[in-house]
Simulated assay, not measured.
Amino acid sequence: MIATSTPEDGHAANRRITTLSVGVAVFLIAIKAFALGASGSVSILASLADSALDLIASLSVFFAVRWAAIPPDHEHRYGHGKAEALAFLVQAGLVFASAVFIAWESIQRMVDPRPITAGGWAVGVMIVSIAVTLGLVWLQSRTIRATGSLAVRGDRAHYAADLGANVVVLIGVASGAFLGAAGLDAAAGLVVAVWLFWGALGMLKGSADHLMDKGVDDETRARIVAAVLADPRIGGVHQLRTRLAGPVLMIQMHVDLEPDQTLEAAHGVVVEAEARILKVFPGADILIHPDPRGRTRGHGGVKGDAEPPPASR
C-alpha cells in the first residue's frame, strides 16, 4: 500500500497508533491473566499467550516506525524504511512460536480435559477483548490508508487474526463452562493455533516481498506513467523501476525528450514531471533520467529481462 499523507504526518500517525497498540496489548494481557486464574481455560491460556507475543510484536513495531522515520544519512542514503520490514519479519516469527505453543497445550488438554470454572468471568473478559481489539484494528486501518506503513500493517494483521481467534475462544469457553464440554475448549485452542499459523505465513510473504524489493502493482505503475506522460513534451517512459522502503515509494525511470532542447529546458520538463508524481504519491523518492528521443542506446546498467515494454504515446 502506498502512503497518501506527507512523510511528516505519516510518521506522526505511525507513532500514535503504535503507542496505542502497546497500551492495548498490556490491557489485554492483564484482563486475560485474570480470566485464566479464575477459569483455568486452555483457550484463555492460548489467547493470553497470543496477547503476550502481541506485546512483544507491538513493541518491535513501536521502535521500528521510529527507526524508519530517521532521515537518510551518510551510511543509509535510501533512509531507514526497511526497519519496518524487519519488524514485520520478527512479528511473523513470534506468531509462529505462539501457534506452536498453543497447539501443544491444546493437544495436552484434549488428552487430559480439565473443567472450566468461573465461566461467566471468562466470557465477559473475551467480549471486552473482542471489543477493544476491534477498535484498535479499525484505527490501524485508518492509519495504514494514510501512511502505507508495512510495520503497522503487520501489527494489524496479528490483531485482526486475534479477532477471529477471540471469537473461537469465546465459543470454546462458553461451551466448556455452560455445556460441560471441556473438550470443545481445547479444540477451540487448537483452532486458534491453526489460525495464527496461517496468518504468520502471510506475514512472512509480505516481509520477504519488501526485503527483496518487489515492485509495485501494475495499477500503481500505470498511475506513475500517466502522471509523467501528461506533458506532451515527454514522448515515452522506459526502464521504470519501483520499490518500497517502508512507506516511501522509490521511483526511477528514463523519459524520452526532444534531442535538440537545452539541458536547462530538459531539466525543467523533468522537474515538472516529478511534481506531478508527487501530487499522486506524496513523499515519493523520484529519480528521472532524460534521454534524447530516437538517439538513445542501452545504458544505465542491468535493467532486467522482466521489464515491461516502454510506455509511449
Rank of each mutant, 00 (worst) to 15 (best):
P7M: 10
N14V: 07
T18K: 02
L20N: 04
S21H: 02
A25T: 01
F27D: 07
I31L: 08
I31M: 09
A33P: 00
F34P: 05
L53H: 06
D54M: 08
I56H: 02
F63L: 14
V65Q: 07
W67T: 12
E75Y: 09
Y78I: 06
L86F: 14
L86V: 14
L86E: 11
F88H: 14
F88P: 06
F96M: 05
V100W: 02
I102W: 00
E105A: 14
E105G: 00
S106K: 04
S106D: 11
I107H: 00
I107R: 01
M110E: 03
R114K: 15
R114S: 15
T117V: 13
A118H: 14
W121E: 12
M126P: 06
V128K: 07
V128L: 13
S129T: 14
L134F: 15
G135A: 13
W138Q: 11
Q140W: 13
S141K: 11
S141W: 12
R142P: 08
I144K: 05
R145Q: 13
R145H: 13
R145V: 07
S149E: 04
V152I: 11
V152G: 06
G154C: 02
R156Y: 05
H158F: 11
H158E: 04
A161T: 15
L163K: 06
V173Y: 04
A174T: 03
A186M: 00
A188W: 00
V191Y: 01
W195I: 14
G199T: 14
L201K: 13
M203P: 03
M203I: 12
L204T: 13
G206D: 15
S207L: 02
A208D: 05
H210I: 12
V216L: 12
V225S: 11
V228P: 06
A230S: 10
G235C: 09
V237W: 04
P247Q: 01
M253L: 15
D256L: 10
P259W: 05
T262A: 01
A266L: 06
V269R: 05
I277P: 03
F281N: 07
P282F: 03
P282G: 00
A284T: 09
L287S: 13
H289R: 05
P290E: 02
G294C: 07
T296S: 03
G304E: 08
A311V: 01
S312T: 13
